[in-house]
Design a protein around this nucleic acid. Sequence first.
DNA 1: GCGCGGCGTGAAGATCGCGTGAAAGCCCTG
DNA 2: CAGGGCTTTCACGCGATCTTCACGCCGCGC
Lengths: 228, 228
Amino acid sequence: MSLVLVVDDEPQIRRALRTSLEAHGYQVSTVGTGEEGVVGAAEQDPDLLLLDLGLPDIDGTEVIRRVRAFSDVPVIVLSVREGQTDKVAALDAGADDYVTKPFGMEELLARARAAMRRKQPEEPTLPVQRFGELEVDLARRLVTRDGEQIHLTPTEYGLLEALVTNPGKLLTHQWLLRKVWGQGYGTETTYLRTYVRALRKKLGDDAQAPALIVTEPGVGYRWVAEAN
Amino acid sequence: MSLVLVVDDEPQIRRALRTSLEAHGYQVSTVGTGEEGVVGAAEQDPDLLLLDLGLPDIDGTEVIRRVRAFSDVPVIVLSVREGQTDKVAALDAGADDYVTKPFGMEELLARARAAMRRKQPEEPTLPVQRFGELEVDLARRLVTRDGEQIHLTPTEYGLLEALVTNPGKLLTHQWLLRKVWGQGYGTETTYLRTYVRALRKKLGDDAQAPALIVTEPGVGYRWVAEAN
DNA sequence: GCGCGGCGTGAAGATCGCGTGAAAGCCCTG
DNA sequence: CAGGGCTTTCACGCGATCTTCACGCCGCGC
């Protein structure tokens, strides 16, 4: 969930923004002064800054400048001032957008989406996991061994993903069943036996001397391979 | 020097923008239709796109979508329309900013600076992709095989674009349906079967031994061709 | 030493999803 | 209003996948 920091000295505007933003699934934090805004931007590391220009303490452009000293967070300025000079000053200080009050909530939300979309480095590119000659690419959903691609069925892949993303942890039968098969499951340990076996076979693991998936009798399974 | 591509059908606006932009040290290129705009964005690789929404040929948001298929260039929309819905549509299609006419030149220049400042060194998809004898021109929406042009229906092209712009990645049924058919879709896997088959046939791929589109049973499809 | 529960193994039946072919609906143009 | 292109829908056959079952083995407690 994305965190939005609202900086405005008027309580009713803070409340209105909070309501609308939270209704659209954002987490909202509000402060009333520029000073608090700069500190909040540093401490809370928000995904978006909504900044009113008419603050009592510091000038809005100054807030932007100070925030820009340490953060690239998208900043959208809200203001009653129509003047071009204010807009130019705010934008050149480092703001990403400038919206004049009164503004439509839909428009503001769209501009917020646009601003946040840009800052995303796409996907945090979860790295390809390597375990010896085994390679698991969660992003592309590809598994290779000795350079050869291994075909996994959806269930097999789901199980492998659950294991690999929880390395070293003991995953109980119930937890795995719920994770891979869905909420309604939890007792079908024969499924697990069947699919753990299929995985071991395809990944080249040996149940008697496992290097990847260890059986914890009566409890569950554990992914023990060391990433390298 | 930064290159700005202006897309507007009114010559006097083109001239006005050119004058102001050149006076501020920008190199300016202008075109009058959405089609030329998309192609220009591909061939000239501008640092900024100024796009009028009221174009004679293609809808403005469609121009944005097409450009976004291969480029992350900042896009600022210019429009006479005040309506929020237009703004939201344009911003969600991928625009960076939306300025309503009449606008002040100083403000536009400031917004342009802000938009370009954000530009990050990212690897854009090449507008023309080649896969062996297959060539996909994302800017002109042209597909050729052995030099022969292949005719694709809009849906077929949309599907191909979704695949080609996400090479190697497993695209789930739901993701593809939402991307190509729209938000309301997600379960109509028969559509996918029908159109994947049509694409394979037209592109010369074989479902049994696919070189372009691989089926991931129960999950989705994957574009596996290597660009060259 | 013996019974028992849990596991690995093998395999079989049921089910699902895919590719295929085709046809019906829809929309725009002539 | 007739035609053609495009989209949506349906039925079928087949192979892959999921589910289920039976059996033997091992470790553990009695």
